[in-house]
């Protein structure tokens, strides 16, 4: 009888300690393309237009916007604070330190969603963390936010609130040069590329 009580106490207190301990992530695995695609399908790596609006309004320093289009398109128009890394030079020496780092969250965007989506798959697959993609790209952002239409009066408060935020963001896009340039670039050290694989397992 006694040993049972003892075992119960030991296991319950061990699990209580486990519950209290902060969770660490020890993982150095390359994901397969399938796994990354699933992540995209589940929305794990997506930033919605309205989430981006918050980033822009708050000028959130923990995010970095990365424009993957060509330099000329970037010249024409880009998000405030964005930097331009054309898709084909993403993995070159000059830029790799921006996409393989632990300091900030990158948001990739292109005109539609596909170019940025590819960049996301490629970076995630290499085990680079902290990279995300703007859902629907610039096109959707303009449709939804910059050209946002006021919801009808009967819409609920939440919708009106979203509209207010969108309206607030529009100052960055309409009416002159309200684009604050990104003048505080942080130098980021590259992190060695990881090359481990998950083991096979289970009964399959």
């Amino acid at each position: 009888m006694k040993s049972r009580v003892l075992l119960t106490i030991v296991i319950v207190s061990l699990s209580a300690i486990a519950a209290i301990l902060p969770q660490k992530k020890n993982s150095s695995v390359q994901l397969s393309a399938d796994e990354v695609l699933q992540g995209i399908n589940l929305g794990t790596y997506k930033i919605s237009s309205d989430q981006l609006t918050e980033v822009i309004i708050n000028q959130d320093p923990s995010y970095m916007l990365i424009d993957l289009r060509s330099a000329s398109e970037f010249e024409d128009y880009h998000f405030p604070g964005a930097i331009n890394i054309p898709f084909d030079s993403l993995f070159t020496e000059n830029w790799i330190m921006y996409i393989d780092q632990d300091l900030r969250n990158n948001i990739f965007y292109s005109n539609g969603g596909s170019l940025a989506g590819q960049a996301l798959v490629l970076t995630r697959q290499r085990g680079f963390k902290n990279n995300f993609v703007l859902e629907g790209g610039l096109n959707e952002y303009f449709d939804k936010v910059v050209n946002a239409e006021e919801p009808p009066g009967i819409a609920d408060a939440q919708e009106h609130k979203i509209y207010q935020r969108r309206k607030a963001a529009q100052q960055y896009f309409k009416g002159g040069e309200a684009l604050p340039e990104n003048d505080t670039e942080i130098m980021i050290k590259p992190i060695p590329v990881r090359k481990k694989k998950m083991v096979q397992g289970g009964c399959s």
Binding site: K24, N26, S27, S28, V29, K196, M198, V199, G201, G202
Partner: peptide, 11 residues
């Protein structure tokens, strides 16, 4: 927690 195992590799 003790960083003795790489949970990313575990199946």
């Amino acid at each position: 927690y003790l960083e003795m195992i790489d949970m990313g590799i575990i199946y």
